[in-house]
């Protein structure tokens, strides 16, 4: 089973929830993926022992100026305008290239070869008896999606089909989030009871419904703000799986890099209960 944790709004507590969920179900075989590759921080809480660091590259075009006749087909097909074909020269802008390979496919002169450009690394290890993989995008790099894809593929290769995979996604609702949650059996959306939390929650729900992924909501910092998230969930038939109060002690644990379930044992049961509820909802 694959459970992803996303949010829409940033800073609502995705990592808090993902980490505690994973630690509460250790009687199962668990694989933890930190797919928030622009800012992977689950390792602060899980303290994994990293055994392998694998560079991840995307293919970018290299032009053989001898073979090229400047027909311009490569620039025409490039949706990201990573190529400029001038009368006597072709310029490549590797940082704009998404590595789709379209230019190479369409070049009538075979003047394009693909060379790897490193965008980040995958760090693979173990933590608390779990398999742990995180992506880490290189600083200054604008394209997290291919790295997230690489992490998902690596995880799939290593995964025992009976294992539970917990995926910590990035905030937002664009490509990186889609890549991180894609193919999951269930997605937990973490929100806070504020207008910002609700606005971005509704966007995330739209994305997940389009992807056909069953979902439920965790309300973090419950007790602050207003009850509009509750109304929204009720109206849209979304289960509220768990509420975590707006509590100083929880904030202090977070600031010290300590997962809630390790210090506040009553949460062990709450997270297990949430997992049971998710599993039951998927059986219906």
């Amino acid at each position: 089973m694959i459970i992803s944790v996303a949010s829409g709004k940033g800073g609502t507590g995705k990592t808090t929830i993902a980490v505690s969920l994973a630690l509460s179900i250790l009687e199962e075989e668990v694989q933890f993926l930190d797919c928030d590759v622009e800012e992977p921080n689950a390792s602060i809480f899980l303290k994994p022992r990293i055994k392998e660091v694998v560079p991840v590259s995307i293919p970018v075009p290299r032009i053989d100026q001898e073979k090229c006749d400047f027909c311009g087909k490569c620039a025409e097909v490039c949706a990201y305008h990573a190529l400029a074909v001038l009368p006597q020269e072709v310029l490549v802008f590797p940082h704009l290239c998404h590595g789709c390979g379209g230019c190479n496919l369409l070049c009538p002169r075979g003047a394009i070869t693909e060379v790897g450009r490193e965008i980040g690394t995958m760090e693979i290890g173990r933590s608390n008896g779990m398999d742990f993989i995180q992506g880490r995008l290189n600083v200054g790099e604008a394209m997290p999606t291919p790295l997230i894809r690489a992490v998902r593929e690596e995880a799939k290769k290593r995964r025992n089909p009976a294992a539970v995979t917990v995926i910590d996604a990035s905030p937002g609702t664009s490509c990186p989030v889609v890549e991180a949650v894609k193919g999951s059996d269930f997605c937990i959306l973490v929100t806070e009871p504020t207008p910002f939390g609700l606005n971005d929650l509704a966007l995330a729900v739209e994305v997940l419904r389009k992807l056909g992924i069953p979902l439920g909501v965790v309300i973090n910092r419950s007790g602050m703000g207003n009850d509009k998230v509750d109304f929204y969930c009720q109206e849209n038939h979304i289960p509220i799986l768990l509420r975590i109060p707006f509590d100083r002690e929880i904030a202090v644990l977070y600031s010290q890099g300590i997962p809630i379930v390790q210090r506040k044992k009553e949460y062990m049961e709450k997270f297990r209960g949430m997992m049971n509820r998710i599993q039951e909802s998927l059986l219906i």
Partner: peptide, 14 residues
Amino acid sequence: ATSGAGVQSGQLVA
């Protein structure tokens, strides 16, 4: 364009 507007515009002008 979401990205590469400068590259494409530059090519057009060229």
